[in-house]
Structure formats: C-alpha cells, structure tokens
C-alpha cells in the first residue's frame, strides 16, 4: 500500500525547483562556513606579530669590560653586545641565521659561535664556517647622555 505521506511524483518543473533549492542551500552553507572560517583564520594570526614594542635597549657602557661579549635578553630579541679592546661597542643580533639558536662570544678564539650546529662568525658577524646562510644582522649603537643606546 503506498504511503499517504509520500509526495506525488514530481513533474519536471518541480524537480528543477527542488534542485535549485538544494543548490541554494548548499551555497548558503558554503557562505556560512566561509563566514566562520575567515574570522577564525584572522583570529589565529597573532595580534602582536609586529614584534616587541620596545625599539631600543639602554645601558651603562662601563658595565661591560673591553674585550668581552654578552647576550642581552630584554626587549624580546636577544642581542650580542661586543666591546672591542679599544673600548668601542658593536651590537649584533644574537639569533643564528641558520635555525634560530642564540650565539655566544668565545673570547679565547675571538669568534662568535653557535652551540647548535657549530656555525662560527667573525666579530663583525660574517660567517666563517658551518651552515648559517647569512651574516648576523647588526644594530646601530650610540652614546646618548652617557648611556649606550642599541636600536634594535
């Protein structure tokens, strides 16, 4: 016995209407999904990706003896500050250009060394050996009112 709730056989016209409605529903769902996906993607993009807000580091130049090097961590980006024997300063990015490890100054060998994959750099930041593809970035230093200012 035929089910009385069964709709009558669709005429060609009606079938077109149903197809259209199905397609419209599909398109609506796609728009809705995109409306959720786009803000989600933007939300996942870090809001503070522009980097640290502090643009420079200031310190007392006498806090570092000539012929030494140290890593400054404040401000977000590690900075390698070298003081030459003649008292002049040089500031370089302490982030190895290979895979992001923090380099250090080896006073004995007068070299900058990376502990991860044995990359070495000259005191000017140029690559001597190992896998780093680029020299270390250098930052300008200046004396401002008796303080050493490193602009990062």
């Amino acid at each position: 016995m035929p089910n009385e709730h069964e709709p009558p056989a669709a005429s060609p016209n009606e079938s077109n209407r149903r197809d259209f409605l199905e397609r419209a529903l599909g398109a609506g769902a796609a728009v809705w999904a995109a409306g959720i996906a786009v803000p989600t993607g933007i939300y996942l993009w870090p809001a503070a990706a522009s980097g640290p807000t502090k643009k420079y580091i200031e310190l007392d130049p006498e806090s570092q003896a000539p012929g030494t090097g140290r890593v400054l961590g404040e401000g977000g980006k590690p900075v390698l500050l070298l003081r030459q024997k003649n008292g002049e300063f040089r500031a370089l990015s302490a982030v190895c250009t290979h895979l992001g490890c923090v380099v250090h100054w080896n006073a004995e060998q007068q070299q900058i060394q990376c502990p991860c994959h044995a990359g070495t750099f000259t005191p000017e930041g140029a690559v001597v050996s190992g896998p780093p593809p680029r020299p270390l970035a250098s930052y300008p230093t200046q004396l401002v009112a008796g303080k050493l200012r490193i602009t990062t």
């Binding site: 996942l44 993009w45 870090p46 503070a48 990706a49 980097g51 977000g76 980006k77 982030v95 290979h98 895979l99 992001g100 490890c101 991860c116």
Partner: peptide
C-alpha cells in the same frame, strides 16, 4: 629549531612560522 625548520619553507615559511609559534620567537 623545529619551528625554524618550518619557517625555512620558501615564500610562505615566515608566515607559517609566525602562525605556528604565535609570534617571531
């Protein structure tokens, strides 16, 4: 080191690294 490897993918690498790490470091 692991996320730096992701970041060394050409073109989109840097953005991918930022997305994975939620920042530069």
């Amino acid at each position: 080191v692991g996320t730096e490897v992701v970041a060394s993918v050409p073109q989109i690498g840097h953005s991918l690294g930022v997305l994975v790490r939620g920042g530069e470091a």
